[in-house]
Nucleic acid binder design. Structure first.
Lengths: 275, 275
DNA sequence: CCGACGCTGTATCGTATGTTACGATTTTTG
DNA sequence: CAAAAATCGTAACATACGATACAGCGTCGG
C-alpha cells in the first residue's frame, strides 16, 4: 500500500518533538518543493539544524535522505503525469477531500454569489467610493466581527469610515452625524437583534443609504435597506455560518480598492510616511 | 522576463547534437521530475553519459547543475501554488456567476483543508474542550475580528474564554493569569506583528499551549506553537484573504460544540434563564 | 531537589555528486 | 577520400552533501 508522504506527516505530527514538528510544518507549507532541496536548505527554511531534518525523515520511516526524496519524486511524478489529476485525488484516504460542514460552506458561498449580481456589487462599490460620504458599519452579536474586519480595510483606503462598536448608547448617538449622502453597512442574521432594527429605522429616516448583509430569511431591516445582500448560512452544525457574508465583504473590499486605486495609493503612501 | 525551462528546451532543441537531444526528450517525457534527480540518474534515464547531461544544461544557459535544478524547483513551486493548474475547474456547469476572486477564495478554502487533517482538528478540539483550562484569543490588525468572532461563540459554550483586545499594554498584563493548562489561540498573517510574536514567546515560556492560525509563509510564532493551521490567503486582489482561516475557525467552533454538547446544552439553558 | 532521560545543536567524517581533462569515435568539409 | 572539426564517453578529481558521534540543555519523574 502506497501511503503518501503528506499523510505520513499528518499522522505522526503530534508524536514528534518540537524541532521535528517545525520541519514537518515547513515541508507542508512548501510541499513538496522544499523536500527536494538539500538538507542544509531544508533546515534553513525550517529554522532548525541539519540533524533534526535527518531525524525527521528517519521518523517517517525512511532509511536515508535520498530515499525520502525519491518518495517525493515518485509522488510528484504520479500526480503530474495522470491527466485526471485535477479532480482532486491527492488524498485517497479522505473522501471528498473536506469535512461535510466545510463542503456545505463552500456550497453556501457559491450559491450566495449566484444571487448577488456583479451589477449589484458595482452599485454598492459606487456608493462606497464617494470619499465625501461617511461610511458607518455595525453588526450583531456574531456578525459584528465581520463588520470590524471590513472596517479595518476600508479605513485604510478611504477617509470617514467608522465602526460602531461597544455600548448601544455609544453608537446610537452617532445618528446625529449621519446625513443623506452617508452609507450605513449593517450585518444582521438571525436571531435578529431588536436594537439593530431600531437603529436602522432611525438612520433610514435621516435619509442614510443602508446596505444590509443578512441571511436567507431576511432581517426586518431589509425594509429600510437600499441594497440587500443575502448570504447562505445553513450548515450541518449547531451554528449558522457567516463565511458567505465574510467572503462578500472581502469581495467588496477588493472591488472598492480597485475602484479607488489612484486615490487610495496616495493615501496609503501618506500613511506609511506617518510611521 | 522569466522564461520557463520547458520553453527554453523546445526553442533550442533542433540546434542540439544527438546526445543532448536525447537528454532533452527524456526531460520532457518526465518533466520536471527527472531533472530533479542526480546527474547520474538523469543520464541513465536518457541513455547518455553524465557529461552530456552537463553540457545539455550548460547549453540551456545555466552555469552549473544545481542552478538548473533551482530553476526547476522555482517553476514547480509557482505552478503548485497557483490553484489553476491542479484542482482547476471541477465545476464546469456553473462557472458563470462567480467573480475570479471568489473562485480563488473557494479554492483557497479547499486547499487549506487538504493540509489540515481531521485528526489535527480533533486534537485541537480536545485541547479546547477542557473547561478548567482557560482559553485566550488574540489576532493581528486584520485577523483580530476573526479571533473576536470565534470568541463570541466559544464564550457561549464554555467558561473561561477571553478575547484579548484593545491596547497592547492591556492584554500583555493578562500573561499573569496564564498557566500550563491554558490555551492561547493566535491569528497572525503577514505582515506579522512584532508585538504578537513577543507576546507568544512570553506565553510559551509560561507553558501555555499555543494554537496558531497563519498563512502559508508561516508566522515566526510557529516556533512556539503546539498546533499550526496553515490557511491559504492568496487572491487576485490587493489584499490577502482571511476567508480560509475564518472557515477553519467556524469548523473548530462546530466540532467543539458537538464535543461539549452535554455540558454546553445545560450552560445555554442557564443563560436563557438569566434574561 | 536531584538524577535520568530525551531532544537539539556543533563539529567531524566518509562518500556520493558534480565537474573537468583527455582520448576515442563519428561527422563534416574541402 | 582525407583531414579537420565536433561530439561523446572514460576516468580522475575536488567539492559539498548526507551521515554520525558527542556534548549541552531543558524536562520530567522520583
Amino acid at each position: 500500500m502506497k501511503t503518501g508522504v503528506a499523510e505520513l506527516i499528518s499522522d505522526r505530527m503530534d508524536s514528534m518533538p518540537a524541532g521535528e514538528r517545525r520541519a514537518a510544518q515547513a515541508l507542508i507549507a512548501g510541499y513538496p518543493v522544499v523536500g527536494l532541496k538539500t538538507v542544509a536548505e531544508f533546515s534553513q527554511v525550517a529554522g532548525v539544524s541539519s540533524p533534526t531534518i535527518l531525524r525527521f525523515v528517519a521518523r517517517l520511516g525512511f532509511h536515508n535522505y535520498p530515499e525520502f526524496q525519491a518518495a517525493l519524486q515518485d509522488e510528484l511524478a504520479a500526480q503530474l503525469q495522470s491527466p485526471a489529476s485535477r479532480a482532486g485525488l491527492p488524498q485517497p484516504s479522505r473522501r471528498g477531500g473536506v469535512p461535510p460542514t466545510v463542503e456545505a460552506t463552500l456550497e453556501n458561498i457559491h450559491e450566495t454569489f449566484r444571487h448577488v449580481s456583479e451589477k449589484q456589487i458595482a452599485d454598492m462599490v459606487t456608493l462606497l467610493s464617494n470619499p465625501k460620504a461617511a461610511v458607518f458599519l455595525i453588526g450583531g452579536r456574531f456578525t459584528d466581527p465581520v463588520a470590524h474586519y471590513m472596517a479595518a480595510h476600508l479605513t485604510i483606503i478611504r477617509p470617514n469610515v467608522l465602526h460602531l462598536a461597544g455600548q448601544e448608547s455609544n453608537w446610537r448617538d452617532r445618528l446625529i452625524d449621519m446625513g443623506k449622502r452617508d452609507v450605513l453597512l449593517i450585518f444582521d442574521i438571525r436571531r435578529y437583534q431588536e436594537s439593530l432594527a431600531r437603529f436602522a429605522e432611525k438612520a433610514h429616516q435621516r435619509g442614510v443609504h443602508i446596505i444590509l448583509f443578512t441571511d436567507q430569511w431576511l432581517s426586518p431591516i431589509a425594509r429600510f435597506a437600499r441594497h440587500v445582500v443575502v448570504g447562505r448560512t445553513a450548515v450541518p452544525s449547531p451554528w449558522d455560518s457567516s463565511a458567505a457574508l465574510f467572503v462578500v465583504a472581502e469581495t467588496l473590499i477588493g472591488e472598492l480598492t480597485r475602484r479607488l486605486e489612484a486615490d487610495s495609493a496616495r493615501r496609503i503612501g501618506e500613511m506609511e510616511g506617518l510611521r
